[in-house]
Design a protein around this nucleic acid. Structure first.
Lengths: 341, 341
DNA sequence: CTGTTAGCGCATTCAA
DNA sequence: TTGAATGCGCTAACAG
């Protein structure tokens, strides 16, 4: 049988209350007593039963997620993951709220942060717009002792407690390596489509991609990135113009959302399967395109993992407990037609 | 506040004990009473607090894992994952045991299954050798009501409750697609190294690979698979002989363990980076080879995920609870130099 | 500074 | 067939 607080109390010759004070290092215990208790804890090899503790506390963590508004599928998947987290609430002693703000709008995000912070939560997560006003709002949260984590896209130089997302430079490098292997025509132009340079994840992907191509595949010519605002219609127009202008484009790295538009533009020109395409995020559209050969590789992150991780981290931070970084690292998923989940 | 058993008792006008009997559908409740209670449960939207229930029961799940003996790194990683599960035991109310048996030895595995089954456990997991005597032993376990899951490699036509591992045919197809894209010389021979055809995972990988090459890249010539017994020294000898005999080998699909031997053979012949290599499992050796360019792609499964999943499933089965298949599916990981974890 | 006591939500004797 | 009482391991008032 595992030792309990009673055992500690007995071997240390104190009461339960004192043991509890030491365990939760609350004040009001004489140095000597505290040491006796700590000693007993060590000798017995005590580990607290968290479930029982939570039961006794009947604590419920109030968490909130802020997501950009808009209907792109990846954010939809994130939303679904948050909905799952909500449904798990009863089991995990959490109560999570979802708030939407206009996309790529730093001011709106900062305001939401302030508002929710004022309403009182135990933790907050958001897809960050990388702007100073957001950093300032996060600073305010931090001063109030509310842990904040960034989701999917990080915030430069801020008080965020953690970043729940992939290494986007590495993702860009992956894309470069794949396209480099797939394309054998020297001097071939490679198109790059981003959502917006206002979000850090897209900037980092572009940079990682460019650097890796320059270093490992200097024979390729990377064109200036197009900004599609994560919107299928815009992507469709922009990439269409580019393809008409430069019919020799050999590969495309699509690192934002709106792949529906890309696929349509390629198919209309009979380029599906001819131009090599590496795209980001697994959505119904990108999945179908991978299956029919229009997209060759999808680089992805698992929204479910990210949300679950964010919840775990916020709970831990709210209790001042450490997080196991290795366990919380979000991996870069690579999908071919054959290993789709 | 969430409704509790007290609330149910109150609105149904019965005692806690009766509520408990209904909740755990135990006998000794009049039909009418039972219905009243069930009605109250429905009306209140009651969901049981599992943590509290386990606390009250102070139940501990006794689980056992059986692994093949031998020192290949993947099994080492699996062992480490089991050690982690052991260390989480106190938190998860589990107590897991690890037993080793000689590799590729059906009789030894069957005996171990019988022995542990007789000693009494709540659940059992093993890397299966795909043989009838093992299936029979699993059948015996099943009769005793002990849930059994296969780990990493499955057992054909058996009473195993679940398979915790990847889709190995799909893994083989992934390898085919990658090698097909990387190799541009028509008619180039492609070598295949397996561990043993006695384990189902290796057989399936070979088949998946062959089929996909035939279908999508008929220009390649797949050589007969070498069996390296998952042993670096044997792999070294075998692939060395092959490479000396056929210096035109353009790519290698290594689907078993023992990649140290493969890497050494390639390096000694100055073929590192020239011959395209797709290998299985992330180990210190394969990781180093991926980083230095000797291996191009690693197809992997996450031993940590697999063990955690096995534990969850065994606990659920032991309680007769359903498992959420989608959540327990083990994905095929693809690693390039850039997305190593 | 320290101890007593009463729960948290549920399961399980033992009586009735 | 039903109910009252006790305890799982821990926390939190409230006394001393």
């Amino acid at each position: 049988m595992r030792p309990t607080v009673h055992d500690i109390a007995a071997t240390a010759g104190v009461s339960l209350a004192t043991v509890d004070r030491v365990l939760n290092n609350r004040p009001g215990v004489k140095r000597a007593t505290r040491e006796r208790v700590e000693n007993a804890i060590g000798v017995l090899g005590y580990v607290r039963d968290v479930a029982a503790a939570n039961l006794a506390k009947s604590r419920i963590y109030s968490l909130a997620f802020i997501l950009p508004d808009g209907d792109n599928s990846f954010m939809g998947a994130l939303e679904a993951a948050i909905a799952e987290a909500q449904s798990r609430g009863p089991h995990e002693r959490t109560q999570v709220r979802l708030v939407k703000v206009p996309a790529f709008d730093a001011k709106a995000l900062a305001e939401a942060l302030d508002k929710i912070g004022a309403e009182g939560v135990d933790g907050l997560a958001a897809v960050a717009v990388d702007a100073p006003e957001v950093a300032v709002a996060v600073e305010r949260l931090s001063e109030k002792g509310i842990p904040f984590v960034t989701l999917v896209s990080d915030l430069t130089a801020s008080a965020r407690a953690h970043y729940c997302g992939i290494d986007n430079s590495a993702a860009g490098r992956c894309a470069a390596r794949l396209i480099g292997r797939f394309v054998s025509t020297p001097g071939a132009p490679v198109a790059v489509i981003a959502g917006s340079m206002l979000v850090k994840d897209h900037r980092e992907r572009v940079e990682g991609f460019r650097d890796a191509v320059m270093r490992d595949h200097p024979e390729l010519r990377v064109l200036a990135p197009i900004e599609g605002r994560d919107d299928g219609a815009i992507v469709y127009r922009q990439i269409g113009m580019l393809l008409d202008e430069r019919p020799d484009v050999a590969a495309i790295y699509s690192l934002g959302a709106g792949n529906r538009g890309l696929v349509r533009a390629l198919k209309e020109r009979g380029l599906a399967g001819k131009v090599k395409v590496v795209a980001h995020e697994l959505t119904p559209a990108s999945r179908a395109a991978l299956e029919d050969g229009t997209i060759d590789v999808i680089i992805a992150q698992d929204p479910g993992h990210e949300v679950r991780s964010a919840v775990r981290i916020l709970k831990a931070k709210a209790d001042g407990q450490p997080v196991i970084d290795a366990q919380e690292k979000i991996g870069i998923d690579i999908f071919l037609k054959d290993n789709l989940p």
